[in-house]
Design a binder for these strands. Structure first.
Length: 285
DNA sequence: CGAGTATCCTGTCCGC
DNA sequence: TGCGGACAGGATACTC
């Protein structure tokens, strides 16, 4: 359940269900799930066995669980289809990694295997925050109160690319994926292919505010899920798909002006927008 | 260097 | 019903 609100739903579920639990046996059922772990499955299991899980943290789409070793965390990225499930036994399909937590088990389940888990050290990043090594290059997320939207807007204006590409660039601002990029652009009335330097700083700041807003609304609804692939640690789905204005609504009326929503291929994926509300800036400066 | 593309997987859906 | 192709919410390793 890839984007910020969905990952936050998972983080909350983990915080509720695994905090204070001690790790017993560790099973790596599919080695690809630990491909980012130096030393592979043996190292992953060896580092975590016996440790107690503490806080669940998140930045953008990256998750990590603190442990009673202050330098060691279990980090994870859900990729396109990763889930954490609290269960009494190994899930039948796509179970990749399991932790025995005494009386219950925590499973990383991932149909498409783009997700991963790792046991890694904390490092101090450029914001002075302690984060897993794999997260050090990831920008603060769009919902973080510490995010300086004006500074992000200036970085965006310095790049001569389509604005949607920058919204999806996790090193500029993190947590936004294809769904919320389209939704934010629609709210802020910005064309997805508008070159960033053609947009003013205030316009970009309002775009970032729109992203924060739409993701907060989604989180309040439990996130967006279209099917069983995207569920929280209990297997429950979120309801924000009803709140989407453009994503997945090609041909349906724009909620603002009733003209049909367009879908185009951009960056090898789909973009949904209203060509009436979201005008492409003129080529002339 | 920045910008754009190809690729890693599995599953579903749609048209023929 | 079977088959091929497009597509899916992501990140990164490439090339130019």
């Amino acid at each position: 359940m890839p984007e910020l609100p969905e990952v936050e739903v998972v983080r909350r579920g983990l915080a509720e269900h695994v905090t204070g639990r001690q790790i017993g046996d560790v099973v790596v059922a599919h080695p690809r799930a630990v491909r980012r772990q130096p030393g592979g499955a043996a190292e992953f299991a060896g580092r975590l066995r016996g440790r107690t899980l503490l806080d669940a943290r998140r930045r953008g789409k990256f998750l990590w669980l603190a442990t009673d070793d202050p330098d060691l965390v279990m980090s994870a990225h859900l990729g396109m289809s990763g889930q954490f499930r609290v269960a009494q036994a190994q899930p039948e399909l796509h179970a990749r990694v399991g932790l025995d937590l005494g009386g219950q088990q925590l499973w990383f389940v991932d149909q498409r295997t783009f997700g991963w888990v790792a046991a890694e050290e904390l490092v101090v990043d450029r914001h002075g925050q302690r984060v897993p090594g794999s997260v050090a290059g990831i920008a603060l997320d769009a919902a973080d109160p510490a995010l300086n939207a004006t500074a992000v807007a200036r970085v965006m204006r310095s790049r001569n690319v389509a604005i949607k590409r920058l919204l999806l660039d996790q090193s500029i601002v993190s947590g936004i994926g294809n769904i919320y990029a389209d939704e934010s652009l629609w709210r802020a009335r910005v064309h997805p292919e508008a070159p960033a330097p053609r947009l003013s700083v205030p316009r970009l700041v309002s775009l970032l505010a729109a992203a924060k807003e739409v993701m907060a609304e989604s989180l309040a609804a439990g996130g967006t899920s279209f099917d069983r692939l995207y569920v929280n640690v209990n297997g429950a789905s979120g309801y924000f798909s009803r709140g989407l204005a453009v994503y997945g609504r090609a041909g349906q009326p724009c909620p603002r002006c009733a003209r049909p929503i367009r879908r185009v291929t951009f960056m090898n994926r789909s973009s949904h927008f209203c060509s009436n509300c979201q005008r492409r800036p003129r080529a002339q400066d």
